[in-house]
Every structure is written in structure tokens, then in C-alpha cells.
Design a protein around this nucleic acid. Sequence first.
DNA 1: CTGAAAGCGCTAACAA
DNA 2: TTGTTAGCGCTTTCAG
Lengths: 336, 336
Amino acid sequence: MVKNNVSIRDIAEKSGVSVATVSRVINNRGKYSKETRDRVLKVIREFDYTPNMTAKALRIRRQQAIGVILPEVTNEYFAAITLKIQEQLFDLGYITMIFNTSYNNEYAVRYSEMIKAQNVSGIICIYDRQTDINKFPEDIPIVCIGYDPKTKVKRKNFARVYVDVAHASWVVTNALIAKGCRKILYMSNWLKKEEGVSGRFLGFKKAMEENGLEIDKRLLIDVDTTGASSAYEAVTRLIKSGIEFDGVACNSDQAATGVIFALNAHNINVPRDVKVIGFDNTAVSKLFMPAISSVEVRPELQSKYAVECLMAMINGEKLDRHEYVVSAEVILRGTT
Amino acid sequence: MVKNNVSIRDIAEKSGVSVATVSRVINNRGKYSKETRDRVLKVIREFDYTPNMTAKALRIRRQQAIGVILPEVTNEYFAAITLKIQEQLFDLGYITMIFNTSYNNEYAVRYSEMIKAQNVSGIICIYDRQTDINKFPEDIPIVCIGYDPKTKVKRKNFARVYVDVAHASWVVTNALIAKGCRKILYMSNWLKKEEGVSGRFLGFKKAMEENGLEIDKRLLIDVDTTGASSAYEAVTRLIKSGIEFDGVACNSDQAATGVIFALNAHNINVPRDVKVIGFDNTAVSKLFMPAISSVEVRPELQSKYAVECLMAMINGEKLDRHEYVVSAEVILRGTT
DNA sequence: CTGAAAGCGCTAACAA
DNA sequence: TTGTTAGCGCTTTCAG
């Protein structure tokens, strides 16, 4: 059982050296003989001493802690990133503090106060299109995951990592076309925005054009893709109104399940009659039978980049670049 | 943009009072006139001052922070609890630090060091049958979620909240029986343990006995229920060997999907021929069509209890009880 | 009602 | 190579 009361002074006394020396030993700062080192280390072990990080933080004006701001941990993709971040940070001796914004910028603003008060060393923000990162303390390094590369950011100490969605979408569309699809249903919950800026639609458009295929406006569906029901209804409507399609590119696996159920309900076979691809390669895509084709966005790689460049900024290293893009991979399974 | 440099001394100077008074005002400690209060508050706002929590933590020997130890945030149920905990703690002015054990007690032990070093005010441990809570600093209040009530714990400052799984299982079994099931398949990934201690099997057994039904040993299935495939294979084997059953009680929704797919593959209709109930009421149960009947274990209520009694312990209040049990609710949907 | 001052545990500049 | 000491920003006792 860990005790909570022995301080650096106790260790200094017990090992017959000064606190400065103990501090040096603890932090591997050199300037001590091997003998002192061993003696101090022995006493530390003996008394089961753990340096008080609060005191250290106060002194060096930095907590060995990182704030992770994300919409909701309950989102599988965000959770996967958060898990990996925490693991990596732990190995580096950092604590992970989490803050769920629930897609509400008000929250994010209040969090930023707390984060400042905590003297965290850095922030990782999993972007939700709502959080205004300009509200965060300017001297704290911050990296955004999923932050739209087109958004201009003025602050120093900033980097972003994001998925090359345009390319992923291009690959998805090409995969569908290669499987014989000609009339592809494009489903998104951000269609209006995407048509303007987002890469996902651009990749789709490019692939269609390159293959000499027309985009049927009626097959551009803008629904809530965080669940299955809206997708189910949308597809049902389409079927009933006799609009034909032979491939579906969804921006979530949940939507893909809705699409598949709707097709099945009308005796349209997947993948024979219609091929379907989801997004994020979540658990449900593997749970399904046939397993749903999807897009792997490599949360562990995103976390890796994020932590690496955050640490670089914290350690005052010059970043060779401020944008890390991870390319997604299309996983073809039973629904194509 | 939040600045990071103004201290309590600055506020004291600017408002012409001592730091002691500023401190009193900040913490609503009384002993100041309304005028001083207003003046101080005005200056605080003006300078956008946020008290340095690290300094405070050092002084009062407690961080306004709670450590949440859990197997993995990627588990939907754990994530739901974590999300709610973080929200509540934030409202109470506490930071949430997370630690994923990955079901590995080694990790948990190393976390306990870090937690001690951080002077957290309390710990919430979402139990995974692996973590040894005796390894945690003895003076820090701790509440375990899901901790088996039969496990003896000696430490002070300890409370647990758990689901009455026995009752939930009893209700599930009764629901299946009420729907006409007689040969019920009981699926678990902890069968051996359950037959000994766990309440889940007890509830099943009780309901069967009360209804004069025999438990068919061949219908007690012990497989990995964290995914769908093991359940799929187990059910397929059962069908092939001609062992009949008309109801399935799973301990996860993932397993339930595997069961349903296996049945469908053999043209066995759900719910007509076989009724299926999952567990945890996760997203996939609602995604499915027909939606999968499941058991709602109220993560938000579990979080609420956990945070409440943790706060009580932190504030030195005497707990009226050390066990909080939340009763689960069976949600009947399309598969029954 | 208000202020002076000690000190939480640590780091780092400076002295030896 | 080692020690002394100031001070990080805050709370709290004690004196007024």
C-alpha cells in the first residue's frame, strides 16, 4: 500500500545529503557521484517515496499533464484516439485529463479556463467543428485532430493532424466503380458544407468525373448519419420513388447498417444488387454479417502524430511541419 | 484569449487589499465587507484572473482532480460512465484524469503511483476483475463501479456501486419465459465464475426453477461475448448438432448480434422461432433491425451514485451506506 | 473586517 | 560534487 507522507526533505535527511542532490538524482540532472546516487536511490525505494508532482508543477510552472478536449468519449472513433493518447502520454510520464464538450463551445470555453488554471503542458483537441481554439491560452501548445486544413489559424504553438478524407473518398468511389457501380448514392450529414469545402465530396466528384460518370443530384443525401434510422428512411424513400442506385458511400458505419437494412427489407441483395461502404471501420462493421466494407482512419496513427508533435512543441523543438495527414485505407468486406 | 500570468498578488495590489483578503473572497470564506468583495471581484474580472490550481493544490494538499481508472474507454459502457462522471465532476470544479488499464493490473499499479504523486482527491475505479484496489494509496477515497459485492475490502474510504445483475438476469429469464420460451440458451464469457459466485447465473437459475423449467447443461454456453463471432460459431454448432432452444439470454449485445446472424443463416426466424435478449443496451442493439431487446444498466445513474458518494467521502461526511446498487431494466424490442 | 507571514514540496541559481 | 536558499502561488493562523 502506497503511503503519502514522505517528502524530498525526508529522503535528503535519511541519506545524509541535501534536497538539491536528491532532486538532481530524481531528475537525472547529473552533478553527483555514483555513490550518492545509489545511496539516495536506495533510501527512495526504502521509503517508497514518490515526488509530489503538484509541488514540482508549481515550481516549474508546468504540470506533466495534457488536456484532451473531445466531443464525447462515447463516440467509438474518439474513444479509440483517446485511449491511444492516454497510453502514449502515460509512457512519457504525463497525465491525461479529459473534457467532453458535447459539441458545445460554451463548455469548451469554460474548459479552457480550467486548463489554464491547471498549468497543463499541452492540449490535444479532437475537433468537432464547434470548438473555437482561439479561446485557449495562447502560450500552451495545442494540436487539433481532424481540424479542417483550410481553416486559418494564427496562434503559435499549433499543429494539426487530419485524415486525407478527399483521397479516402476518392478510393471508396473508385472501389465501388471497380465493382461495377455506376449510380452511386453519396450519403453525408454535412453535405452542404462538404459541397463547399470538405474534401470528402471533392474526392467523390473527382472519381466520378475521372470515370466519366454523372453525379445524380437525387443521390446526394443529407441525413443524420450518427445513427441508422435516418439512413434507413432515406433509402426507403428512394426505393419507393423508384430512383435507382447500385452503390452507396456512407460517412459512417451506422448509416451503412441503416442502408443495408432498408435494402434487405425490399429484397434488394447486398452486395449483389447494391454495394455499400461505411466509414471509420467501427466495431459494428465487423459485427455485421456480411461484414460491412468500411474506411480505416487509423486512430492509433493519428494519436501517435498528435502526441509526437505536441511533445516536440512542449520541449521547444522546432517543428518541421505543422500538418500531419494520415491516409485512410479502404477495407473491402462482404458488402461490396 | 486567456492570459497566464496574473497572480493573486497582482489582484491584491490592484485592489488595494492583502492577498489574504483576495483569497477569502475567491473562496467565499467570509470576513470581508461587501465593498472589498465587489472591488476585488471587479479587479479579478478586469484582469481575467484565474487562481492557479497547482499552487492551491500544493497548499491544501489536494488536487481538485479525480482519477478514473477503467479497462478501456473504447468499451461503450465504460465510455458512457466516464462521460457522465466527467460532466458531473466538472460541474463540481474537478478535473477528470483517465487511466486505461487494458485489463492489466501491472498498469493499474503504476497508475496508482502517478495518482498518489498527483494528490488527487479521489478515485473512481471501473472494475475489471483484474485491478487490485489494495494497491492504491490508503488515504484517498475510492469508489468502485461494478465491484463484486462479495469481495471483501478492508480499506477505509471505500464504497461500491454495482448493478443488481442477479435481478436483471431473473427479469430477462422471466421475460423470455413469458414470451413462451422453454429451452433457454444462457450465454456468458464468465460462466465458470458465474456458476460459483456471480449473480447473473443465480438470477437465471432462480427464474427457471420458479417456473418449473429444467436447465439444459448443453445450453450453458461459455464463449467470448465481447464480439459476435464466437457466439455465431457456438450457435451454429448447436444448430448443427440438433440441440433445440427457443430463447437466448446473452451477456452482451455483440454476442446477441452473432446469435441472430447465426439463426438467420439457418432460416430460423427471430423472434418467431427463437427470442434473443442482449445486455448493456448499447448502440448496436438500437442499430439492428429488428432492434435487439437488451438490458439497460443505467450508466448515468451509476456515475451519479459514484460521484455523489465519492464527494461525500472527500468532504469527510459519514456515508450512510457503502454499497449502492442500481437495478437494471429490461428493454423489450424486436427480437422478443 | 484586514493584513503579515509561514510554509506546502519542489527546482535552480549561486556559493562553496 | 555538494549544499544553501529563494521562491513558485496559494491558504491559513495569528495578531490587530
